[in-house]
C-alpha cells in the first residue's frame, strides 16, 4: 500500500508518515500544492492525506484537479479548517473523508485503513483468501490459524495482493505501490520479495503469470 502525505508542516508530515509506515504503508511526502498536484496525478497511490492550507496552491483546487482528471484515489482531508461549510466544501470537492486538526493519530489510521479497504470493495478489516487471513487493523496475517511472521515489506506485498484477490498484478504496479518514490527500481527485487513470501505461505497461494505478473488465488 502506498500513501501520499501532503502537509506543509514538515514535523506533522514526518509524524503522519512515520505512523503510516509503521502501519504498513510506503509513504511519500510533499510540502506544497504544486508538487502534490503533480505527484498525485503521475504516481499511483492507495490513499492521500491532504492538508488544505498549502503553499503555492490550495489543497482544495489540487483535489478538484485530481478528480477532474479522473483520479479516483481515496483522499482524506486533514486540516485545521473546522467549520461545517468548509467540511461540506471539502467533501463536495471530492474528498472521501475529513479530519480536523488537532487529531488523534489512531483516529487517522483507522480512517485511512477503512478508506483503503472500502476503495478495494472490502467491508471488514479482515481479508481472507482460503486458509489465509489478514487483519489490516492489527497487521496480523494467519495461515490456517497460525501466525505468520512477516517483515514490513512482505506484509505490504501480501496486503496489496489480498486487496486485489484473483486479479493479475504486474511487477510494475507492485513496485509502484510497495515502494516510496526515491526507491531505485530494480526488476529483481519484486521477484526476490515474492519468493520470500511464498516460502512462508507455501507456493500455491501466489501464482506467477508469465509476462503479466502475479495473482493471489482466493480458493486455495
Amino acid at each position: 500500500m502506498r500513501a501520499l502525505v501532503v502537509e506543509d508542516n514538515t514535523q506533522a508530515a514526518e509524524q503522519i508518515s512515520h505512523a503510516l509506515t509503521e502501519h504498513g504503508f510506503a509513504v511519500d511526502q510533499c510540502h506544497d500544492g504544486e508538487e502534490a498536484w503533480f505527484i498525485g496525478d503521475t504516481e499511483e497511490y492507495d490513499i492521500a492525506i491532504l492538508d488544505i492550507g498549502l503553499p503555492k496552491r490550495d489543497g482544495l483546487s489540487v483535489l478538484s484537479d485530481w478528480r477532474r482528471n479522473g483520479n479516483k484515489m481515496p483522499v482524506i482531508i486533514l486540516t485545521a479548517r473546522d467549520t461545517w461549510r468548509e467540511r461540506v466544501t471539502g467533501l463536495r470537492a471530492g474528498a472521501d473523508d475529513y479530519l480536523i486538526k488537532p487529531f488523534e493519530m489512531e483516529e487517522l489510521l483507522a480512517r485511512v485503513e477503512a478508506l483503503v479497504r472500502r476503495s478495494n470493495g472490502h467491508a471488514s478489516s479482515v481479508l481472507s483468501a482460503g486458509s489465509l487471513q489478514l487483519d489490516t487493523a492489527t497487521q496480523r496475517a494467519t495461515l490456517a490459524g497460525t501466525h505468520l511472521d512477516l517483515s514490513a515489506l512482505e506484509y505490504r506485498l501480501l496486503a496489496y495482493l489480498m486487496n486485489r484477490q484473483n486479479q493479475v498484478v504486474s511487477k510494475a504496479t507492485l513496485t509502484e505501490h510497495l515502494y516510496q518514490m526515491d526507491f531505485e527500481h530494480n526488476s529483481n527485487v519484486i521477484e526476490v520479495l515474492v519468493n520470500r513470501v511464498r516460502k512462508k505461505l507455501g507456493t500455491t497461494h501466489i501464482q506467477t503469470r508469465r509476462g503479466q505478473g502475479y495473482l493471489l488465488n482466493a480458493d486455495e
Binding site: N9, Q11, A12, A80, E104
Partner: peptide
C-alpha cells in the same frame, strides 16, 4: 491565528503520545 496554532498543537499531541 487559530489555524496557525492548531498545527503545532497537533504535532505536540502526536509527539507526546
Amino acid at each position: 491565528l487559530a489555524h496557525a496554532l492548531k498545527n503545532p498543537i497537533s504535532v505536540l499531541k502526536n509527539h507526546a503520545n
